[in-house]
């Protein structure tokens, strides 16, 4: 028997050098569908984001790493670097 996989739409935004991980015409922004239970970190790793040296945000806040994404969430990542 096969289970039903629920897909959810989330927004991804990759800033500065991480923009290059998405196709250029996306300009660092993309809507994606992820399976239920996916975390922000899972999603970003699948895109090639080096998590260890990154700031990860969901709706602008630092997420609990085990928290699954919700429909409509906005996931953002950028390199943890010196300020402005």
């Amino acid at each position: 028997m096969r289970g039903i996989i629920c897909l959810m739409k989330v927004k991804v935004k990759l800033i500065a050098t991480y923009r290059d991980l998405l196709p250029p015409e996306r300009r660092g922004k993309m809507e994606m569908e992820v399976a239920e239970g996916t975390t922000a970190v899972d999603l970003l790793i699948s895109l090639g984001v080096p998590i260890e040296e990154s700031v990860v945000l969901v709706d602008g806040r630092t997420p609990d790493p085990n928290q699954p994404l919700q429909e409509g969430d906005s996931v953002c990542a950028f390199s943890a670097t010196a300020g402005g």
């Binding site: 800033i15 500065a16 050098t17 040296e53 602008g60 950028f78």
Partner: peptide, 23 residues
Amino acid sequence: DSKTSVLRIYGTPYVPDVTNELG
């Protein structure tokens, strides 16, 4: 250090996207 390379590639103008995201 790839992290610091952000400053060479974009300079501090990479920051508006970050602060805008944080509101």
